[in-house]
Design a protein around this nucleic acid. Structure first.
Length: 586
RNA sequence: UGGGGCGUCGUCCAGUGGUAGGACACAAGCCUUUGGAGCUUGGUACCUAGGUUCGAAUCCUAGCGCCCCAGCCA
């Protein structure tokens, strides 16, 4: 008889066969396949504008689009919607390609650019003019706005709306030829100036922009707007399901209008909620501002919610994929707690990161009864979660460094690490008792004098006595020095946009988002660790080697802290509450 | 204000007429040579008010609240 299984439609637990999480978009596709819409084809795409670096929110979209194509044996395209030469750069194109690949999405040979469709888009515009559905308008930008009306009042028709087909054709051709200055004319669709949907009030299809495009160079001086480009680009590529975020829901009638007027393949647009994360800003414009104004060290600063930043910080793409499938997809405007992302990161790192001992803030310890010249090799487990990771030897000697936080001269209640007269276990080594505290002239603790029990090699006492605490250590003569960069949230508020009248979101920047700790002491086995390598510093957190590392001086980024029960108790004792408010640095 | 969208534990997501479930977070406990990991247990969540029904988170009606739209940005 088999054990009854728990039935649940949600995320499978680790070890279960990965079952895609159900959501409304997936349901729509399932129905479309069943009804043989599009001949049962599933073809999605990720359509970024190359005007910035990809952030966590894009990861959600990529995961959704690629995941759907993959699940249903369909195709996934990467297409750049590069319709605004004023904001776009090759640098962004290159970085986006890297990031999408890093996340594991595969577009095979289908890397496209809306700019490659400019000629077709132009021909379609001519077709619309010929059908009397588009006209050249001489109104200025300000006038266009005035004529558009407001949310509650209908707009007025442009005086140029009645231009004849031939005149429109000639004018549009001259726009392309460069006969007119920027902003002097536009090509507009002739739809309905009284529509309650502002997108239908004769939207602009083409604007004059004498600007060099990162890909088409100076071939064009008129550029199609996003609204005129996006839907048709999807159509050209045979996209079946055009998945986008909620704010484009209002635009769908317009995209449908273009498709119908042109009589071309009709992709189905489906809108979902964009990602919002606590303590995090996911707006390209604001992220750009943080970089430009020097609030962070660059797009790949580990505090940035960019994919580049995440990677440098040590977040894995596996963790991201898990995160994306756990948050689900819906149309609710929600905010995901950062804790969930961190959980996914820890979950992945716990399985893969090699354990190592490192002391961030060293306190010198001399073991008085340990022979001066003796060095022992202690065997340490590389990863208790992975038997295949094996073991390593860690040198042990008379002088060690331990973490300053692991000693309290006057231990508070509940603190059971080292203190005068107390015995603790040195991980993988011996039991050790603190005998004396050495201070400098100003009363700072500079050294601990301790004794060890030679009978406890490996960590267990033959007499069976127990010790409350196990602490990490590094042998002083063998230690390597390193720099550690400890990160906290970039903003102090769950919602960084919550500001008072007249204030800017930068007021919420966390002054303690980066703490640099120099002269950390680390195990010798770390010598030569490659940039990007992931480790767990036992009892401290996950760390990864930063590319700033130089031979002889490693730099580590703290990817995530470990759960710190003692810190939580202590915060509670200080009456700060366990969960709310700003988190902590170390 | 016109239009579009959305309201289920603290948070996110399921449940689409038949005992409201999962994850994260939180709390308590177990275990532990990482105060890690793991394991166990816990909690008055269906926006409100009417209605239909034997039975409503699901259907109907009326409210209320939140988000988006007035770029020649995407």
């Amino acid at each position: 008889m088999t054990t009854p299984q728990k039935i649940s439609g949600s995320t499978p637990r680790a070890g279960d066969s990965p079952r895609p999480k159900s959501h409304f978009i997936r349901d729509i596709i399932l129905r479309d396949i069943e009804s043989n819409k599009n001949g049962g084809r599933v073809h999605t795409r990720f359509p970024p504008e190359p005007n910035g670096y990809l952030h966590y929110g894009h990861a959600k979209s990529i995961h959704l689009n690629f995941g759907l194509a993959k699940e249903f044996g369909g195709k996934f395209n990467l297409r750049f919607d590069d319709t605004n030469p004023l904001k776009e750069e090759m640098e962004y194109i290159e970085s986006i390609i890297e990031d999408v690949r890093w996340l594991g999405a595969d577009w095979e040979d289908r890397l496209f650019y809306a700019s490659d469709y400019f000629e077709q888009l132009y021909a379609w515009a001519v077709q619309l003019i010929q059908a009397g559905k588009a006209y050249v308008c001489d109104l200025t930008a300000d006038q266009v706005r005035e004529y558009r009306g407001t949310l509650s009042q209908p707009g007025r028709e442009s005086p140029f709306r009645g231009r004849g087909v031939e005149e429109n054709l000639a004018l549009f051709e001259r726009m392309r030829a460069g006969d007119f200055p920027d902003g002097s004319r536009t090509l507009r669709a002739k739809i309905d100036m009284a529509s309650p949907n502002l997108n239908m009030r004769d939207p602009i299809l083409y604007r004059i922009l004498h600007a060099e495009h990162p890909r088409s160079g100076n071939k064009w001086c008129i550029y199609p707007t996003y609204d005129y480009t996006h839907g048709q680009s999807d159509s050209i590529e045979g996209i079946t399901h055009s998945i986008c975020t909620l704010e484009f829901e209002d635009h769908r009638p317009l995209y449908d209008w273009f498709i119908e007027q042109l009589g071309i393949h009709h992709p189905q647009q489906i809108e979902f909620d964009r990602l919002n994360l606590t303590y995090t800003l996911l707006s390209k414009r604001k992220l750009l501002q943080l970089v430009r104004d020097g609030h962070v060290r660059g797009w790949d600063d580990p505090r940035m919610p960019t994919l580049k930043g995440a990677r440098r910080r040590g977040y894995t793409s596996e963790a991201f994929r898990e995160f994306c499938s756990r948050i689900g997809v819906s149309k609710t405007n929600g905010v995901i707690e950062l804790a969930l992302l961190e959980h996914c990161v820890r979950e992945d790192l716990n399985k893969r990161a090699l354990r190592v001992m490192a002391v961030l803030r060293p306190l010198r310890v001399v073991i008085e009864n340990y022979p001066e010249d003796l060095v022992e090799e202690m065997e340490a487990v590389n990863n208790p979660e992975d038997a295949n990771a094996g073991t390593r030897k860690v040198p042990f000697s008379r002088v060690l460094y331990i973490e300053r936080d692991d000693f309290r001269e006057d231990p508070p209640k509940g603190f059971y690490r080292l203190s005068p007269g107390r015995e603790v276990r040195l991980r993988y080594a011996y039991m050790m008792t603190c005998r004396d505290v050495i201070k400098d002239a100003s009363g700072n603790i500079v050294e601990l004098r301790c004794t060890y029990d030679p009978e406890t090699r490996g960590g267990n006492a033959p007499d069976g006595r127990k010790v409350k605490s196990t602490i990490h250590w590094v042998s002083a003569p063998h230690a390597l020095e390193a720099e550690a960069r400890l990160y906290d949230t970039l903003f102090t508020k769950e919602d960084p946009n919550e500001v008072q009248e007249g204030e800017d979101f930068t007021i919420n920047l966390n002054p303690n988002s980066l703490e640099i700790v120099e002269r950390c002491k680390i195990e010798p086995c770390l010598a030569g660790a490659a940039a990007g390598s992931l480790y767990q510093f036992e009892r401290l957190g996950y760390f990864c080697v930063d590319p700033d590392s130089k031979p002889g001086k490693l730099v580590f980024n703290r990817t995530a802290t470990l759960r710190d029960t003692w810190a939580k108790i202590e915060r509670k004792q200080k009456g700060q509450g366990g969960s709310k408010g700003l988190r902590y640095c170390t």
